[in-house]
Every structure is written in structure tokens, then in C-alpha cells.
């Protein structure tokens, strides 16, 4: 299950999307999500899907890899569909036993599914095409203005990148400790929930102890290498906007204008509402 979630994984290949400045990608995702939730008619969603397809095509990431990420949220999608389908009031479409499915419910369920899928695909594509380090750099630089409000952006970014670096090490350590306790006769598979939770104590305690020891060691090593917070640091790989980033910003801008025009313009929305009302009759 955890393996299916593609958010946070990096897919190594060469593409324009990979080379884009992380700030472009982060802002792009944000705008895309805003656009997604502002559409009022099917044409808007069509535009969103088209944009998504274009980005995926450009990214050279196999579609299979991106859709794999959707498996992880299957459960959430199902719940969303059920709730919307059965609990939305309106004109009945089918009704059996005590359950009624309405036209409004159906429309709502379809909308929510499209939104969710696009949302997940949109954020997956960022992490799939950006190394964690690059992403952190992008956040640090992109949120740089927050320093005015005394938010230690640099330190937070450093914390993120260290956390990312230590995840594989701690996973490996968990595996090792679990095996060591298995060798001492521990049992993680049988018994009820309480028993299984209890069985994890011999794993979690050493894991925490080790994590703290590592944190202490690392802090000392960082101090020894003169780390003293975000200010006054220079960058080995500073983020510099290139021409392609400018182009990307223009495309994003065009996408947003189109989104507002097509997805929210009253004439188009009214047109679709009319069709909808005709179906209802």
C-alpha cells in the first residue's frame, strides 16, 4: 500500500519538466489546484484534463507510473463517490429499497472524482520530476518572502531535506530491529490489535533511541561544519530562472486566463445548465 503512493517518489529521466525551476512547478501546481476547484462547467474540466495530459506527455514519465499513484487513494475515492451518490438531495434518477440516487448526486460524484484524480496526478507529477533537494530549494526560495514575518524558511527547508535523507536510513534500521526482535521470539503477525500494537514496543523504543542518537550526532557534525542557521549561507547550486521557465510561466498564465474564461464564464456555464435542465425534464 505504502509502495503504491507515488507522491514523494522521484522518476529519473530527462525532460523539459524535469529541468524546469522547482518554483515554476510549485506555483504551477498551486494554480492548477485553484483552477480545478473553481470550474463551474464541463468545458473547464476538459481544459484541466487537457493541460494535465500535456504536462504528462512533456514529462516523459510513463502514464502507468502516475496512475499507480491513484491506487493508494482508491479507498478515499470510493468513499467520496458513495457519499455524494447517495446523500445528495435533488431529482431522483433511480431509487430502490431506501436508497435514492439523484441527478445532482451523480453529477457531484463525477465532478469530485475528476477533481481528486487531477489533484493527485498534478501533485505526483511535481515530485516525480523534481528531486527532493531541488524541491526543498524551491520551497526555500519561493517562500523567501516569509522571512519578513520572521519565519525561519531556511532552517525549515534544511529540516525537510535532512528528514528526507534519513527516511531510508531509518527504514533500514526498523527492518534490522524487527529482525533482531523476531530472532528473540517476538511475534508481529498474530494476535488481536492490542496485542500487535504491544508487540511493536520492542521495535519503537530502540528506533526512537537510535533516531535521537543520530540526531545528536548529526547536529554535532553540522556544527563542526559551521552550520549556524540560514542566514549568511551561500549556495552551491543556486536557483536561477532560465528562458524555459519564462515560457512555462507564460503558458501557466494563459492556462489560468483560459480557465477563468471557459470554466467560469456565465454564457458557457448557462449553456451547459440548459442542457442539464433539458435532461432533467
Amino acid at each position: 500500500m505504502i509502495r503504491d503512493i507515488t507522491i514523494g517518489q522521484y522518476y529519473q529521466t530527462k525532460s523539459v519538466i524535469h529541468r524546469l525551476d522547482p518554483r515554476v512547478k510549485l506555483l504551477g501546481t498551486l494554480l492548477f489546484i485553484i483552477a480545478l476547484f473553481s470550474y463551474k462547467n464541463p468545458l473547464g474540466y476538459a481544459l484541466g484534463i487537457a493541460f494535465m495530459c500535456m504536462v504528462i506527455k512533456l514529462s516523459h514519465v510513463p502514464v502507468k507510473f502516475i496512475t499507480k499513484g491513484l491506487k493508494g487513494i482508491m479507498m478515499i475515492m470510493c468513499i467520496t463517490v458513495v457519499i455524494n451518490l447517495f446523500l445528495t438531495a435533488g431529482t431522483p434518477l433511480i431509487s430502490f429499497w431506501k436508497i435514492t440516487i439523484t441527478y445532482e448526486g451523480l453529477a457531484m460524484a463525477v465532478t469530485m472524482i475528476i477533481r481528486l484524480i487531477l489533484l493527485i496526478m498534478g501533485s505526483s507529477i511535481v515530485t516525480l520530476t523534481t528531486t527532493p533537494n531541488n524541491l526543498t530549494d524551491g520551497l526555500e526560495k519561493g517562500l523567501g518572502f516569509m522571512k519578513v514575518f520572521h519565519v525561519p524558511v531556511g532552517d525549515v527547508a534544511m529540516m525537510m531535506s535532512i528528514a528526507l535523507r534519513f527516511i531510508p536510513i531509518l527504514l533500514e534500521e526498523t527492518d534490522r530491529i524487527m529482525k533482531a526482535q523476531l530472532a528473540r521470539g517476538a511475534d508481529f503477525e498474530n494476535g488481536n490489535l492490542v496485542k500487535r500494537a504491544k508487540a511493536l514496543v520492542p521495535v519503537l523504543v530502540p528506533l526512537f533511541v537510535s533516531a535521537f542518537r543520530r540526531a545528536g550526532d548529526l547536529a554535532m557534525a553540522m556544527e563542526a561544519r559551521c552550520y549556524r542557521g540560514g542566514d549568511g549561507r551561500t549556495k552551491m547550486k543556486p536557483l536561477v530562472y532560465k528562458k524555459r521557465d519564462a515560457v512555462a510561466y507564460i503558458i501557466l498564465f494563459a492556462f489560468m486566463v483560459l480557465s477563468i474564461f471557459l470554466g467560469r464564464w456565465s454564457v458557457i456555464t448557462g449553456f451547459f445548465n440548459n442542457i442539464y435542465l433539458n435532461i432533467l425534464k
Binding site: 534490522r176 530491529i177 529482525k179 533482531a180 526482535q181 530472532a183 528473540r184 521470539g185 517476538a186 511475534d187 514496543v201 520492542p202 523504543v205 530502540p206 533511541v209 537510535s210
Partner: peptide, 25 residues
Amino acid sequence: LVFQYPEHQLFETDVFTDVCFGPKN
């Protein structure tokens, strides 16, 4: 089986209780 750096698997509050973990299991 005693793993490498086995002291990293100790988890009980005192040595004796920890040594009892295996036999109890």
C-alpha cells in the same frame, strides 16, 4: 541469532527485564 551492534535492540528499562524478553516470548 545475535545481530551486529546488538545493543541497539535493548529496549526495557533495565538489563534483567530485557534479557527476560526472549524466554518469555
